[in-house]
Design a protein around this nucleic acid. Structure first.
Lengths: 104, 104
DNA sequence: TCAATTAGTCAAAAAAACATGACTACCAAC
DNA sequence: GTTGGTAGTCATGTTTTTTTGACTAATTGA
């Protein structure tokens, strides 16, 4: 048990929460792919070697909950689902580019 | 075992590595405290409720290895050690501020 | 000499993240 | 009616990260 669940919690660090929203084994790569346009579940699985359904599904769900991606059901015959960068996601692009500039 | 340790590895995502350098339970908070000036081991332990020696030591070591913090031994009587933002660390500040701007 | 501060290390346990394989459900083609 | 594609869920197991508690070693003050 930590002493963190105190009333005056959250005096800590705003960047922390956002870092969490972008961190994890697959989120940065998913974000990057989403920059080029809508992404889809099975397509991501194929584009991310070493990934798996569970991890990709979790990443997509969390990025949707964090309002980085927007989930859209496309009403066509095979009925597929697209994940698109939200407004917040779009706004994050510059920060993401900033991160990329720190290649050692 | 993943299929990731292939020769043509590292076609993935540059931002990913930097995110890892700043991610973890304590690194963002340590970075933030380092913005105000040099930080020290025991002082950090006191300022980060719920933290512990091991975690803080690991965070400091990794941030030093990532060239975000610079470790300096101060030759005074109680002989203490300071961690200061490196040049790279300074350059990261704007990105860090960018992250902070995404408070929901 | 005993207690306290400095800055840690080490082994082990607990918790969180990630992976695996089986399974669901819908629709279309053969 | 079986295969294949869409998009997942679920239980379980493994791996990684974080925490705990004991310990080290040097210096200071009483």
């Amino acid at each position: 048990m930590t002493t963190n669940n105190l009333p005056q919690e959250e005096a800590s660090c705003p960047a922390e929460g956002i870092l969490k929203q972008l961190s994890g084994k697959w989120k940065p790569q998913i974000f990057k792919l989403a920059l080029d346009g809508p992404v889809r579940f099975n397509s991501l699985l194929r584009q991310l070697p070493g990934s798996n359904k569970q991890s990709v599904a979790t990443a997509l769900k969390e990025m949707e909950e964090a309002d980085i991606l927007v989930k859209t059901v496309i009403q066509e015959k095979p009925l597929h689902i697209e994940y698109t960068l939200s407004e917040k996601g779009q706004a994050m692009v510059s920060v993401f580019r900033g991160l990329e500039s720190f290649l050692t």
